[in-house]
Every structure is written in structure tokens, then in C-alpha cells.
Nucleic acid binder design. Structure first.
Lengths: 272, 272
DNA sequence: CCTTGACTTTGACACCGTGTGAGGCCATAG
DNA sequence: CTATGGCCTCACACGGTGTCAAAGTCAAGG
């Protein structure tokens, strides 16, 4: 018979944990002195304690350990639990590896630039959405070419929405389709709450969903969007992704003062 | 200005978390209505929220995130934090991989044998210890050869300890050294609390420490130790280790009834 | 103006495994 | 007798998040 302290040393656990295992019925002492409440353990209980520790170290919860040890689970169920655990572990390893990549990218950034300003990139998935809007052609992707096209475009779209009494649900969405000659088709739209029969002079597009989009918030006038885009592109490269498809811009906040504008840039990416 | 619900949707977090970030001062709403307590967020705050989420996803605690975002840390410190985080991640990945190996070993065992009885193997490190005891020769490693040698040996050791009034600290330790002719030198000993000047007719050995020992509890008479040893050997193989060196046996509990004996087997292992 | 339903508020409890500390009992050694 | 150290119970803390409850607020529709 061992005291709780001796038993804890033998089993390489803390007395705190032995008391806890007692409390939750996972490992009851062989004997408890009715007068003093002192716990006594038998050497043979080490086997059970070791089983507890081994299963716990595999990542099972104490509750699961108890079920397993008390043979409350059939072989089938046990098999299922272990497979589930394996899946969880694999998932966690994969997630941690992704984190590690990200951390290392940041480390490189810090070493190179002395700070870490790529920390506003967010991965999300974007649901497909039907939008209503208008299109126009710009000569190139340059801000100087795009700006003068898209702003009146949005103005026109808003005018028609207002005239038809359509409510705005969600932010304005801009997206771009390249043309063969280097020009670009500019689309300005809002989420459509109506069908084609009621389009009030707006075109309807179905924007496909994006499984994995890298997104970043841009604050300030659209003239400055280039550097935000560069930050995003830089992040994508550093973190081992590749961009595919076209970017979208969501207008989250567009007060009269352009310095206060807030946009979210979205671009689809894939691994490697 | 967004309500907390809208802002939460934009930022892909729960309102619960936004309130929490407010409470801990990590992300304060741009405005709180003094009458109703309603929180309002500005679109520009999305950048900070995204930074919070990004850093949190890397595994930093909210406290660390706050330090980083509030620029309470110098570039040096930031660099240190990120490196530390990398080390932690690497460690966790390695640990999870080891777990995964173990889980897969168990899965194989279950599939093959329909149960999981190798779950009492424990890895530990064993400190070096000076012991006092006696040696004798047995013809082989077979239980029939060892048993009749070691039991009188322990008896004799105990006799001399008792005669000299030496206390028993810790369990009896048996270890074995093979001889060239296939025989084996059997050592029976206890931890020595005295020096060679006072060895009362016992030999002193220095048992080296074991960095990584695979251990298992054996219950019952020593005649049955073979199958416990097999379980241990099986575990070692299944989990991608290799045994090196000799085994030791610790006598944790040796009442008159041999059926109640408890021993711990220890054997040094290395990876692969 | 009133109802309704969606939203927000604060506060609390729960999870899980473990450390830590307080306040008190007990046993042994000096 | 006291000092020490082991043991007892009870309680709080960590961290990030879910969930519940009771109550207040807001906007839209009748």
C-alpha cells in the first residue's frame, strides 16, 4: 500500500491529478481511511494508472479514457474512437503545419523589413451571389483608367436602384473581366433582391462562390489601392499560395470624404 | 457604422467574441450608445479585427495579440515571440506525430486481435542510482533458470541489510548481465544509502540512468513474466522503437502470496 | 399606437486538465 | 512540545468559446 505521494511518484503524476481521478471515478484508491480520509493505493493499481496516462497522452479525454478502461465500449466503438482520434490528429498536424508556414513567413518579413504589416490578410470562403449592376470598358487595370469609369458607373447603378425603390442589401461589389486587347470590362453591382423580370435596367450577373479567398481591408481612397494589393500579393506568395481568377472589391464604407473609404479586396487562391 | 451582429458577420466571428474583445480591451467599438449600451463598429475597425483573428489563428493568446497590436513590443521582442511560437508549433507537430504513430499502432492491434491490451506501456526516464546487492550466475534467461537463483539471492541481500540495520529505500532492483557462454549474471539489489566503507558484505553497483525507458507493470508470479515481456516487446516494435541494453525489474510489491506480486519492467529504447 | 420578431444588453455557467494556495488535521523526529 | 512535512478539502484561476436567461431596444407592419 502506497500513500498518495508515493504512488504519484511511481506513476509520474501529481497528487493533484490522483485526487482528481478519484473524484471523477477514474481511479479510486484501493482504500480510504474513514477517519482521516487518507488515500492508499496498491501497487497493482499502477497498471490502471499507467493505462490512464497512456490513453490520456494519446489525446483522449478523461471521460473517454474511463469509458475505454471500464470496457463500456465494444471493440467496434473502440475502433471508431481510435480512428476518429487519428483523423483529429492528422487534421491538427495539417493545421499546425499551415500555421508554421505562416509563422515562418512572418519571421522572414520581420527579418527583412523590421516589422510585420501583413497581418490583416484573412482567408475566407465567399458564397455565390446574384448581383445586379452595369458594365463599362476601361483601357487598362491602372487606377487612372479604372477610377473614372467605375465611379460614374456606381453612380448610375445607385440612381436606378433608388428610382426603382430597391433596397441596398450588402456592400457594392466591383469585379473585372479582362478583354483580349488589354482592356478590361468593369462591373459595378449590388446584391440582387429581385429577378430578371424586375431588373429596372440593370444587368444580372451570377458571381460564383470562392472556396478559398484571400482578403484584405483597404482604407482610404482608391488611388492608394495599389499598395494594399501589393501587400496581399506579397502575403499570398510568402504563404505558399497562388492566386487564381479575378479580384473583387467590396465597398464597405463610402462616405463623401474619400479618405474614409473602406474596401475589402478578395481574390481566389489555391495552395502552392 | 455597423451593429455588432453585422460587424460579426463581416469579420467572421461571433458576437460573443466581439463582446469579449471589448471586455478585455482588445477591440473597443467605435461608439457605445450611453443610453442603451449598444455597440457600434466602423468599417475601418475591420482591419484591426482581421489582425486579431489572424494572429489568434497563428496560436498567439489574446493577451499576446493585444501586446503585438498595441505596439507594446519592440521589433526585437516581436521577433522573439514569433520564433518562440515557431518552436512551440514544431514541438507540437512532433508530439502529435508521435501520438499519431501510437494511435496507428493501436489501430493495427485492434484490427488484428480485436482488443487493445498494450496500453499499459509507459515511457519514462530513470535516474542513475547506486545500489547495494549480490550477484550470482544462472544458466540462461529462462524463468526456470533465473527464478531459483534470484530468490535466494534477494533473501540473502535482505538478511544482510536487516542485520546491518539498513533501511529499505525504494523497491528491490534486479538486473542481468549476459555472459559469453550463454549464462547470465544475476544481480539483486536495493538502493544504497551508504558508501563502500559500510557495505556490510554487499557489492555496490552504479546503475546508469536511462534516458528513455519503456516500462510496464507485471502483476502476478514471476513465472508469468514472459507474456508481459512479450507485450512490452510488441509495443516497442509497433511504436517504432528499438530496445537497447538490458532490462531491469523493480519489485514494487512482494507479499507472501506470489499471485499478488507487482513488478515493473524497464528497458532502454531508442527511436527507429 | 400597438404588436411582433429580430436584435442587443449583461451576467452567469460550462467545458477540460492542471497549478496553486489557504486553512486545518496528522504523524514522526528532535 | 514543537517543527516539519505529508495529507485532507475547498476554491480559484487559466483561455477561448458556447449557451442560456431575463430584460431592454429597434424597426416594420397593421
Amino acid at each position: 500500500m502506497f500513500s498518495i505521494g508515493d504512488f504519484a511518484r511511481l506513476g509520474l503524476v501529481s497528487t493533484r491529478m490522483l485526487r482528481h481521478y478519484d473524484a471523477i471515478g477514474l481511479l479510486r484508491p484501493a482504500h480510504v481511511d474513514p477517519g482521516t480520509g487518507y488515500r492508499s493505493y496498491q501497487a497493482g493499481q499502477l497498471a490502471r494508472l499507467n493505462r490512464v496516462v497512456a490513453l490520456k497522452d494519446l489525446g483522449f479525454t478523461l471521460e473517454q479514457v474511463r469509458s475505454i478502461l471500464d470496457e463500456k465500449v465494444s471493440t467496434e466503438e473502440l475502433h471508431g474512437m481510435v480512428r476518429l482520434r487519428r483523423a483529429q490528429l492528422e487534421e491538427r498536424i495539417a493545421a499546425d503545419r499551415a500555421r508554421l508556414l505562416s509563422v515562418e513567413a512572418r519571421l522572414r518579413t520581420i527579418e527583412r523589413e523590421g516589422h510585420m504589416k501583413t497581418d490583416e490578410v484573412v482567408l475566407k470562403s465567399v458564397a455565390p451571389v446574384r448581383v445586379a449592376g452595369l458594365s463599362a470598358r476601361a483601357a487598362s487595370y491602372e487606377t487612372e483608367d479604372i477610377g473614372p469609369v467605375i465611379q460614374p458607373l456606381f453612380h448610375e447603378v445607385c440612381g436606378r436602384m433608388d428610382a426603382a425603390g430597391k433596397p441596398y442589401v450588402g456592400p457594392g461589389i466591383a469585379h473585372y473581366v479582362p478583354e483580349d486587347d488589354g482592356g478590361v470590362l468593369v462591373h459595378a453591382s449590388f446584391e440582387a433582391t429581385f429577378g430578371p423580370e424586375d431588373a429596372v435596367g440593370l444587368d444580372l450577373f451570377d458571381l460564383p462562390g470562392i472556396e478559398t479567398a484571400a482578403t484584405i481591408i483597404h482604407r482610404g481612397p482608391m488611388d492608394d489601392i495599389g499598395s494594399t494589393f501589393q501587400t496581399l500579393a506579397h502575403w499570398i506568395e510568402e504563404n505558399g499560395y497562388r492566386s487564381v481568377g479575378l479580384a473583387r472589391e467590396l465597398s464597405l464604407h463610402c462616405p463623401p470624404d474619400h479618405a474614409e473609404w473602406v474596401h475589402e479586396l478578395q481574390i481566389e487562391i489555391t495552395k502552392a
